[in-house]
Amino acid sequence: MMMPLMLIELKKVFGRKRSYIGFLALLLLVSILQIAMWVEGKTLIDMVTQSLKDSFVMEGNLLNGYFISFMLMNALWVLLPFLVTFVAGDSVAGEAHSGTLRIMLTRPISRTALITAKFTASVFYTFLIVLFLMVISLGVSSVIFGTGDLMVYRTSLSIFPEEEVLPKFIMAFGFSFLGMTVVASLAFLFSTLTNNAIGPIISTMAIVIGFTIITNLNIEAFQVVRKFLFTTYISSWMLFFDFEPDWQQIGISILVCLGHILVFFFSAVWIFNRKDILT
């Protein structure tokens, strides 16, 4: 029964027009930023490298698809949680609100199977959103701007040779998927608690924004709590672009993300199995 259930859930997700809003928003924003970089990118690169030109000889195409893609990932990272929450938060609560959940649950399917299928559909949607961002930012930018060495400024300026860049991006996008799955799982958990999709979406975003502010503000008092917040770990994709990535930290981040996903998912299963369907 699991396979047909999953297919049904996927059909439902992709049968709704609003599921495509995320893809459309990404396409629009990436296109705007690509056009802007096409017009103004060279000036930007000149500004960044101005001080370096006295000491180094800059050769090759620095305004390339990799550079644009890295920039797009940084810029759109804040948008992705909104997009995945939109679908995951609606997954159970939306159906409870519309009354279709009760019609599903009068069928001989276990609640655990149904919630697992819904969760899988939300995770698959998250995967497609991240994959879509990868294709249009990395793929399309590489076609338009070409490829080359990647210049990145994090704690210090790093320039990675072209042949090292693609694996870094694949790992970074892979980790982004994991990070966004944590957000989707949280929205999904909230979705089992209410009968209205607005609640889970707003709650998840409030938590993500609140935790991100605490994570990023350089305040001593926040140092203690920071390591307990999942937002500290979900943005660890950036570590892949350090000159010498801290693999131990990346490993910890992966484990923390997986731990959160499992806790959120099993909590959702537990709650849903005990939930009275009153709508």
Binding site: G15, R16, K17, G99, R102, I103, T106, P108, I109
Partner: peptide, 19 residues
């Protein structure tokens, strides 16, 4: 599950996937 496979139900106002 065994029992529900032999039941057809309409609970209050029927709701469907409108799209």
């Amino acid at each position: 599950n065994r029992i529900l496979s032999g039941i057809g139900a309409m609970v209050e106002e029927p709701r469907f996937y409108e799209y």
